[in-house]
């Protein structure tokens, strides 16, 4: 075969491949997601955000309309009670917070179009109030009061420590816990101590750590309620 024709063939093949690539780009690509959903879990009584867990915490279940069966999407919530997913497809969704630390609320139909804001005004199972965390000698001592909004007993109260501000039940270096198993007594001061000496390899003296108090209600699948984390040098 003459060289010229061979080159021509290769050129044609190249052209064919290039046109195929561009052609498939046109055909196959859907538009990206253009909508989003964000908001905050707000305490119906105090109007303040409800503290959450970022790991294994409250989730928001989204069921997109028009699919059967539909695979649920789950949004996680930041420790400060806010959440955001800015990359959702515009559509109508059934939205329901699940496995939360507040009294269950029903699902709602939400048209998500553009960046949609949806706050959940709910009643937390427990309010952790008047928290004081301080270092006393070789211990960190947390004192707080508990106010609960359901009749169930409180399963446990905990003091968590971590070098990261997003600490909680699913993310801690050290935890001190007390099992309670009765309902909270109003205006009682609860105390948890964390011994620093016996945790000296994880909580190193002279460094700063976050501490956070949590209380878990005895409701199936409930997540703990928290007071905001505080940072301390130990």
């Amino acid at each position: 075969m003459p060289l010229k024709i061979l080159i021509m063939n290769k050129l044609l093949l190249g052209l064919f491949i290039i046109s195929f690539v561009f052609f498939s780009c046109e055909k196959d690509n859907y538009d990206g997601p253009t909508a989003g959903l964000s908001g905050t879990f707000i305490d119906a009584l105090t109007n303040k955000p409800i503290e959450q867990d970022i790991i294994n915490g409250t989730t928001i279940e989204l069921l997109e309309k028009g699919y059967n069966p539909v695979t649920p999407q789950y949004l996680i919530v930041k420790n400060n009670g806010s959440y955001e997913n800015s990359q959702l497809f515009a559509n109508t969704y059934t939205v329901r917070p699940v496995r939360g630390n507040f009294i269950d609320i029903p699902a709602q139909e939400v048209v998500i179009k553009g960046q949609t804001i949806l706050d959940f005004v709910v009643t937390p199972y427990i309010r952790v109030k008047e928290t004081n965390i301080s270092k006393v000698g070789t211990k960190v001592i947390a004192t707080f009061k508990l106010e609960q909004n359901v009749l169930n007993p409180i399963r446990k109260i905990s003091l968590y420590a971590h070098s990261d501000s997003r600490l909680g039940d699913g993310m801690r270096l050290v935890v001190s816990e007390k099992t309670i198993n009765v309902a909270a007594v109003p205006n009682t001061i609860y105390t948890i101590e964390m011994d620093l000496t016996s945790n000296s390899s994880t909580l190193k003296p002279g460094l700063g750590y976050y501490f956070r108090v949590g209380a878990l209600i005895n409701v199936p699948e409930a997540k703990p309620n928290y007071a905001p984390a505080v940072k301390m040098v130990i």
């Binding site: 790991i55 294994n56 069966p69 695979t71 699913g170 699948e221």
Partner: peptide, 21 residues
């Protein structure tokens, strides 16, 4: 950490076999 959903494995291929996950 063991998360409670791991007490059951996820069923593969829900989109085509139509089973409840």
């Amino acid at each position: 950490t063991f998360i409670t959903r791991s007490y059951y494995r996820a069923i593969p291929g829900i989109g085509s076999n139509g089973l409840v996950q």
